[in-house]
Design a protein around this nucleic acid. Structure first.
Lengths: 123, 123, 123, 123
DNA sequence: GTGGTCTAGACCACG
DNA sequence: GTGGTCTAGACCACT
């Protein structure tokens, strides 16, 4: 059983599932920084997916700064995730603000919103 | 200038833009309850959009309970929006809870989250 | 004869030649802002290139903010190139600074460097 | 710690990193003229790199006139670097001119370009 | 018709 | 062996 996973039945594109999956694994420290990633072909074989699809995921992962791919040598987990972490922090804050605005628009009371927040942080 | 609007350069499907637009207009009381909606063909001409796309939006609007289509008579705004309102309220609450969970996962502090909420309700 | 061009013999990837070509055309005002781009298939037929390759170029163009692609509707030149312009300005300044540093390292005199600059701006 | 260095995680081909590295060392006088270079196999062992890759770098270095390989004897640093120096000088001047042209095209003012030059020479 | 995803298989430079 | 490019052809939702 691999730590990488994709769900064929999911409507989200496979390449996107994989990029999200790998990004999450890196951010949670489950993929050691600087470590070699499985080769495109190896990952394709492991997941039973076409190499081109894996390639697309790897390109996106490199664009996000999660991995570095070097022709002829392989792909490696980035050694610096600080930018990744702050980026995720800020986008999460923006998303929270956005859904709060929608909630207010829908008629949710200030008190109920705060209660929702406290419930989540109290979990 | 129509009260209905779709943005051709927006990535959201046009039928979805229209359903959201109409739902919003109804919930905000800008479309009188029980009123007749423009016919599919009239709406298509008004917005310069393929009638099939309008048809798809109308089907979705009926499914959501925003309008009622009567064969041979036309489409009418629903006369009871209470279900619609509570539905929107609950889905907004769920969405808020969900993005709060993501924010917590991303490392946002409880205090910052509450501040975001208060900022929104204070706007 | 099309305004779009790629050179099969060039070592630069075709998709990259096309993205650079289109970016240049947009920045020089030869492609009207907001205008519809040729469809992926049309461009592929026009240039005698596989649609997947064109698709790759269009994805990159969208990432750069040069065009906007909308499924089912088509691709359109962006309506706002200000970000594009400032970005090009800054990257050109950085490149100039970089090659100046290399020139200094290679032993070029300050006076000769300034002469090179003045020659170029005097052309 | 060797004076030769390659970065396995750099995108530049390793053979090219090595040729640039050696050329630079020679031009800066850090590799005595006429001195014997490490054998291909020794260099490969020292850097932990495939001998084929080192071989490719050595061939390129000889083509550039940085080293001279004598079959059965080994490779030696060239004894005359004047051609190398002028070549580097001219190519740096050409590169500077080229990036100046690009900067002008991007809309950089003559004054800003000159300021960039002066900043670099003033460092 | 449109863009987007995916598969299958080929070729390249690099190692 | 590696990643990257390209072709050919299929299917999808949206218009």
């Amino acid at each position: 059983m691999s730590i990488f996973s994709v769900d064929y039945k999911n409507r989200k594109p496979i390449w996107e599932q994989l990029t999200d999956n790998v990004t999450d694994l890196v951010l949670r420290g489950l993929l050691p920084l600087g470590e070699a990633m499985p080769s495109v072909r190896a990952m394709a074989a492991e997941l039973g997916i076409n190499p081109n699809t894996i390639q697309k995921a790897y390109v996106e992962l490199e664009r996000r700064g999660v991995i570095i791919s070097i022709p002829g040598r392989g792909s490696f987990v980035t050694t610096d995730i600080s930018a990744l972490l702050t980026e995720r922090l800020e986008s999460a804050a923006a998303a929270l603000s956005e859904s709060a605005r929608a909630a207010k628009e829908a008629g949710i009371e200030r008190e109920r919103a705060i209660k929702i927040i406290e419930d989540v942080w109290g979990e």
